[in-house]
């Protein structure tokens, strides 16, 4: 299984914000074992909250990573808050919008909004599905002074493929916008 929980970055403005989407598919194995209830009370496969949060973390990691050309190893260190108010069922589209609220030499704090668009209305609006606040650590500048391998194992090949498909260049500068709809 590839550990990538977003399908595309649709917009990124380094140093400001990022928007990414995840399409929920019934072919995903975890939906065979994870259920919520629909409005009639019937059990329905739903996207697990833990994987939604992981998707938000990956989205936010790209926002922080693109600011320095993906040289820093940026890892999720703390989930400060997570409130999910709606389920995402197969066919739904999840949209994650994240912005950095604080950034220092050793890490950053991120606030994100989760939205969902139900498959029953594919051209309808996204509705708020939750809020997540996260803390990220920059491993090479960690407070414990620990050494990590030189190779950037965080932004590996799968991430590079995602970034290329989304038109996100590792050499984007602060304030330069990438928008996958325009190919850049």
């Amino acid at each position: 299984m590839r550990w990538i929980w977003i399908d595309r970055v649709v917009e990124v403005l380094p140093g400001a914000h990022i928007v990414a989407v995840k399409h929920v598919s019934l072919s995903e194995e975890h939906l065979l074992d994870h259920f919520g209830r629909d409005e009639t009370g019937c059990a329905m496969p739903v996207m697990p909250a833990s994987l939604i949060i992981e998707g938000v973390a990956q989205t936010a990691g790209i926002l922080l990573g693109v600011a320095d050309g993906f040289r820093e190893k940026i890892v999720l260190a703390k989930i400060s808050r997570a409130e999910l108010t709606r389920d995402a069922m197969p066919g739904a589209t999840l949209r994650y919008t994240a912005k950095a609220t604080h950034q220092g030499a050793q890490g950053a704090a991120i606030s994100a909004i989760i939205e969902v668009r139900d498959a029953s209305d594919p051209s309808g609006p996204f509705e708020t599905a939750g809020f997540v606040d996260l803390m990220f650590s920059f491993l090479d500048k960690n407070m414990s002074g620990l050494d990590f391998p030189a190779d950037n194992f965080v932004f590996g090949e799968t991430f590079q493929t995602l970034l290329r498909a989304s038109g996100v260049s590792p050499t984007m500068s602060r304030g330069e916008r990438a928008d996958s709809a325009s190919g850049r």
Binding site: K78, T101, H102, G104, Q106, G107, A109, M135, S137, M143
Partner: peptide, 13 residues
């Protein structure tokens, strides 16, 4: 350790 950074950010705010 990450909480110390969180505390710093929150104190700044």
């Amino acid at each position: 350790s990450i909480d110390f950074l969180d505390i710093v950010f929150k104190l700044e705010q």
